[in-house]
């Protein structure tokens, strides 16, 4: 990780951390940091600038958050059908669209 006052530049493997995961994590950190990312030869280069702290921990927290989002994406690939069925049922029942058990 390169450091330049509050700006950090780091590179992640796109095979391990998808662009989608990085985008979701960047959204979570939108209030805490300015984040830019771009593809660079099979890697993703991330520029992370935060006023909150000059030490590395907030950028490291951000990488943990990318992993959080990535694991959610991994799970969605395996389990989206059951997940969707349950949520759909819950919302439809609440809206009275199906017969309700007493």
């Amino acid at each position: 990780m390169k450091n330049d006052n509050n700006m950090k530049i780091f590179v992640l493997d796109e095979e391990i951390y998808s662009k989608e995961a990085i985008a979701l994590a960047a959204y979570v950190y939108a209030d805490k940091a300015e984040i830019e990312y771009k593809r660079k030869k099979g890697k993703i280069e991330i520029k992370f600038e935060s006023d909150e702290s000059s030490d590395e921990s907030i950028a490291d927290d951000f990488v943990n958050e990318i992993l959080n989002q990535q694991c959610r994406i991994d799970l969605t690939k395996k389990n989206s059908r059951v997940s969707t069925i349950i949520v759909t049922k819950a919302l439809l029942s609440a809206a009275g669209e199906h017969t309700v058990r007493g």
């Binding site: 959610r72 991994d74 799970l75 969605t76 389990n79 059951v82 997940s83 949520v87 819950a90 919302l91």
Partner: peptide, 15 residues
């Protein structure tokens, strides 16, 4: 708002 809360509290999607 309702949908957002329902989706995000679905344990089937929490790793």
């Amino acid at each position: 708002v309702t949908k957002g809360c329902v989706l995000s509290s679905n344990l089937e999607q929490q790793p």
